[in-house]
Write a protein that binds this DNA or RNA. Structure first.
Lengths: 126, 126, 126, 126
DNA sequence: GTGGTCTAGACCACG
DNA sequence: GTGGTCTAGACCACT
């Protein structure tokens, strides 16, 4: 369900949180359904329970889930569209990337060309 | 000459190294010209000399500079084109960004549209 | 595992980095296995943890290892053959040595003769 | 007469001392002839007089020269043959290089092969 | 004065 | 527990 890459510089707890956010946002996990318990997921992924706990706290603070004492953690109803939020995130990250590139003397056309190349390689790789 | 943002998660020594790499790569600092001394820059930026030293070591291992004991640190001649390297970096980061976005269900056309929007806002901001 | 010579002009952190590079390159330490922790090795060698950290950073930038925060430092898969790289290094150092010798008026045949003598004494010493 | 490479890791005073040792050893500068004064050489090479002074001290301690107060520094008669000494130096450096290479798993034949290749490239380059 | 190495001790994020 | 960053202060070789 969730894939962990230990070599990724992104911390494990964030990889887990992002993974669930994706599954929830894309509707793979439905609203009000229960997430696996901390202990269970920790065993399944062979990961320290503290790390799972941190990932779940992250999801909670992002408003993706709600917790019921003694019962577990459940998927919250999504206020704003998941895709909308992701598009907004993409916009911010893309903007930062482009500002950096521009500061290094790369032109707008060159950036566009890089984007097209990337998309091409991804299509070919798929 | 170099601007430090203490709130940035990017470590100080890397901000400094990146800053100089940019100045050197864009030709603002010429080949064989001397960089400010470790102690001087440390005083100017109110930063520990060891941190400056680490930034300069980073530049050295990136091949951007060469050092002469007792004399100072100087800008090396750039073997590989700076821009070429930056374009390659941009490609990698862009690829990662797009893969993430795609995993969230964003289409290639939508990504392109975001890019165009970003470029538009940057042009207007400038 | 690692031997330090304090009288050697080669800095300690480099002796450590070179030592591990050798162990890794020769396959003594296997891929994805964990290196001793910074603090542990510091205690074992009676060396300041910062110096160990610097040695490990060096290995990281050489691409010999990858680090996972909170978990440890691990041996990376070797892209370019270790031996290939070492042969290239040997070539460069040998070239420099021979150029110096030639500048002192030593002939090519004399250099070859010295090499044979050295190899002889090493075999006898072993 | 003497060539300085500021990028070389070898300190300048040593480059100067080695340069004179070479000229003296190969008979380019004759016995009992006078070396240029510290001030003169400093001006010619655009180098700090302290550095020249250190180079001359080095030559003195190597027994290559003798100094006469108020007159200057002169080339001493060479006790042991210059070439003999250089061969001995070459032997030591070569031995160290080969021991390092052997520790990295490079065989004696491979070392010989590298040597031959180096000599080949030098001949071709000349 | 210059760069480079090392020690000591602190703080942070992560697991 | 782990690695990583930063500060403070010392010493060294070299110019």
């Amino acid at each position: 369900m969730i894939h962990i890459d230990y070599r990724d510089s992104k911390p494990i707890y964030e990889q887990i949180a992002d993974g669930f956010e994706n599954l929830i946002g894309r509707g793979v996990i439905e609203k009000d359904s229960q997430l696996p318990s901390v202990r269970l997921l920790a065993m399944e992924l062979s990961i320290n329970p503290n790390t799972i706990q941190k990932a779940y706290s992250e999801l909670l603070s992002r408003g993706m889930t709600y917790s019921v004492k003694g019962k577990g953690i459940f998927v919250a109803s999504q206020k704003e569209s998941f895709k909308e939020r992701k598009l907004s995130e993409l916009f911010d990250k893309m903007r930062k990337l482009i500002l950096e590139a521009t500061a290094s003397g790369i032109s707008g056309d060159e950036i566009l060309s890089v984007l097209v190349n990337v998309q091409k390689t991804i299509r070919e790789g798929a």
